[in-house]
């Protein structure tokens, strides 16, 4: 289970708190959605779970499987099964996508005490997963995310997720930039990973994604707090009403 308790976060060297007391629990086997207006702190929450520098946790805790995530480096978290699909995947010129994928897969396998994959096995695995997600082979030869379209970058994120087989998946606006077909393909990719051993946190602005990836719970994040939680029908309600009516203090 992912357990976040009373999490307070601010950006280093700045006074304003971005996350102001988040409580959230995502049991294994469940998918929770987080919705909320721009700037409410969704990406910040995802970065703090994944371990990005530059954020200071002033109070509270994050545990995964009972282990304190905040004490671990980003790569240690990845080895424990944490995966963040980035809202804005980084372009890295000069690092071939395929080289990167292989290095990542083997780093994680090694850290988990599994055998590293040889070239042939790795290539077989990549081909299979890439095909399922509609990632073209020539993309894999290019620099990591370099010159990829917005949608291609998002597919590449899900390809990495499929290859690394994480147990805690955080998807930050994976649907933005995807066309209708890609949205379906990517959602299928995510759904195949759903299972009793996995927890997922899906950040999105649109209810449409949640038609494909049906969440067990929906939470509304506003100004650094979860102001309301409910079932999947909450997403539909938000679509109609917007965020205006969820002010401070109206948390359910």
């Amino acid at each position: 289970m992912l357990e976040i308790k009373n999490l307070h976060v601010r950006v280093e060297d700045e006074d304003t708190e971005i996350l102001r007391g988040i409580d959230l629990a995502v049991p294994k086997g469940e998918v929770h959605a987080i919705m909320g207006p721009n700037g409410s702190g969704k990406s910040t929450l995802s970065y703090v779970i994944a371990g990005k520098d530059g954020y200071e946790v002033t109070d509270g805790s994050i545990t995964w499987d009972g282990e304190d995530l905040l004490a671990l480096s980003p790569d240690e978290r990845a080895a424990r099964g944490v995966f963040l699909a980035f809202q804005y995947p980084v372009e890295i010129p000069g690092v071939a996508t395929l080289t990167f994928l292989r290095t990542a897969v083997n780093a994680v396998r090694k850290a988990r005490g599994e055998k590293e994959l040889n070239t042939a096995d790795f290539m077989r695995l990549v081909r299979e997963k890439a095909e399922a997600l509609g990632v073209k082979q020539d993309m894999l030869k290019r620099g990591l995310n370099v010159g990829f379209s917005g949608g291609e970058k998002k597919r590449n994120e899900i390809l990495q997720m499929a290859l690394l087989e994480p147990t805690l998946c955080v998807l930050d606006e994976t649907d933005s930039g995807l066309d209708i077909d890609a949205l379906r393909i990517v959602s299928e990719g995510v759904n195949t990973l759903r299972g009793p051993e996995r927890a997922m946190l899906v950040i999105t602005h649109y209810q449409r994604l949640l038609n494909y990836i049906v969440p067990d719970r929906v939470h509304v994040l506003q100004e650094g707090r979860i102001v309301r939680s409910g079932g999947k029908e909450l997403a539909e309600e938000l679509e109609r009403t917007g965020y205006a009516e969820f002010g401070e203090g109206k948390a359910a």
Partner: peptide, 14 residues
Amino acid sequence: EDMLFYLRARGLDV
């Protein structure tokens, strides 16, 4: 820094 974090988030050590 952003590139480093991206790679480390995928399991590569520093």
